[in-house]
Design a protein around this nucleic acid. Structure first.
Lengths: 326, 326
DNA sequence: CTGAAAGCGCTTACAG
DNA sequence: CTGAAAGCGCTTACAG
């Protein structure tokens, strides 16, 4: 049925060893022999069995990726960056999520041990970091995307959260806003702490509400601040989703954006272009982060030692109408 | 280094065959022997090598998935549905995209032939359908998600596009709209033709603009219709993105939604909840479609013959303020 | 109920 | 430059 290396060898009148050699361009092979073998390979439509190759070589040429829920608005970009890079290198991408709690972690763990993949890409591991750290110590190459400030012991790629926060503050200051309301994510995330302190360094404020990255939390923060009667002239939300919530609460309260209140978000998810008004936001280079992480992992698998400092990609302030330039 | 079945066998004082039997609960094994083997497996932390198992069994317990760009707004949901289902069955998911054109198709094709996966899930294949059809004929199990009306020769899961279009029309009619503008996607997509004819059956109109599922195309369609001076009291856009474009164009022209013009979209992407006003839309059950397709493929791999009729999941009209009920 | 042996399809020393 | 043989870690008839 299936065409094997033995079939090719027989048809070409050489040994399997020789076929293997031309397949992997390893060792010297007579140029005519090689040509003949190649011809047979083509005419038979032979493709090496990845399973057999993996078993013999002890590696699977596959990379694993463990992600948070895939419907998070920016996961698509990260994943696309990873897939493109991994595919271009001739590797496969095995996808796992930690959606189904303990059960899926178990499934994932067993796949790791089963050597189903050679290295692992990790996105914002909520509660699997310990497990992963253990695996990494046992020799599994790991690269982390967005460490949320946990600073683990393996290579990671992050973004300039502190500078991103600072750039938001500088922008608000430049357009004359001095009394901002800051809506954060959960404080235990390193990225949240960094965005906050970067912002506060430039534009100090006592008005800081802890949110949880949901639209509802953004809405709630604004509603409460309005109800308390505390004056503010701008909002810096730690992600776009909560900025969207802020926009709605402001509109519902009859406040005009940006005239009464300017709003700046963080992430630049696709939705940010389509809010009313469109959202000024600090862009995270999600796709580039995915690409970079994948390249680092592949390089590591190829023998290049991994950088021990996190690779940090720059954020970029995207100015739209919710906090215009002038 | 690595713990193998031989280590377990030695430690337990049995043959590899016996270990394999308790591993796969296949054949009769003495209950005490089995217990002892299980103990050794646990204490040694033995996990079968997926590569070796795959080679010996001739199957990889892995499913492939070929998708359009992953940053499409509803891909996350589909993917999540698939991953959950596949993981729960103990399978791995190997992800491919047809992003990089010919090159990635080639990479993908070679993975297929390499038997890197046992079956394939396919989402809206733009131009790979021929290749896939050929593979299917050669015995690769395939399930298609959202066939866009191409009606291929393999199993597929779709949604009620025609009824979805009809439900949009009924809703508009119920709220007193009689002069709709329809903004379609490209006409060669089956889903577009179905949505359109379902709509027109209920609410005929001559005002049909062909778009291409982008926000810009929705905006353009509205701008042109307004410029032409043709009166209309509502918009039915074939996807949410172009509905968003329509909303913006209407606002820019000073028309009020829904008072002047009611707007209905299709898809129910996350953004639909956050437009101004929030978008009434025909929801496609993306996650369920992913789950269903995965279940069908797994069942097929398990020996159950695949249904030869497409499995059709119902759409649902989600009423929001852009076209309210009363 | 249990085991020895062959085989899955490759790669890789080793020898020539 | 080339090949025979062992080995990667399993499963599966076959025999007992």
């Amino acid at each position: 049925m299936r065409v094997t290396i033995a079939d090719v060898a027989r048809e070409a009148g050489v040994s399997k060893t020789t076929v293997s050699r031309v397949l992997n361009t390893k060792g010297e092979v007579d140029i005519t022999t090689a040509a003949r073998v190649r011809e047979v390979i083509a005419s038979l439509g032979y493709v090496p069995s990845s399973g057999a190759v993996g078993l013999a070589r002890g590696s699977s040429r596959t990379v694993g990726m463990l992600t948070p829920p895939l419907n998070w608005p920016w996961m698509g970009e990260v994943l696309q960056g990873v897939v493109d890079t991994v595919e271009a290198a001739g590797y496969g991408l095995l996808l796992f999520t930690c959606n189904r709690g303990a059960e899926s972690v178990e499934h994932f763990t067993s796949q790791v041990s089963a050597r189903a993949f050679d290295g692992l890409l990790l996105v914002e591991p909520e509660n699997t970091l310990d497990t992963i750290t253990a695996m990494h110590r046992k020799g599994l190459p790991v690269v982390l995307i967005d460490d949320r400030g946990h600073h683990p012991e393996f290579p990671s790629v992050a973004t300039t959260n502190r500078e991103g926060g600072a750039s938001a503050a500088r922008h608000l200051l430049a357009v004359g806003r001095t009394r901002p309301l800051v809506i954060t994510g959960r404080r235990h995330f390193g990225c949240v702490r960094e965005r906050l302190s970067g912002f506060l360094d430039v534009l100090p404020t006592g008005l800081v509400a802890e949110g949880d990255f949901t639209e509802a939390s953004g809405r709630l923060a604004v509603e409460r601040t309005l109800a308390a009667g505390t004056p503010f002239d701008s909002v810096f939300a730690h992600n776009d989703l909560s900025a969207v919530g802020a926009l709605r609460a402001l509109r519902a309260a009859g406040r005009t954006v940006p005239d009464d209140i300017a709003v700046v978000g963080f992430d630049d998810i696709p939705m940010a272009q389509h809010t009313e008004p469109p959202l000024t936001t600090v862009r995270q280079p999600m796709r580039e982060m995915g690409e970079t992480a994948a390249r680092m992992l592949l390089a590591h698998l190829g023998g290049t030692p991994a950088p021990d400092e996190p690779v940090v990609l720059p954020t970029e302030l995207i100015v739209r109408r919710s906090a215009p330039a002038s």
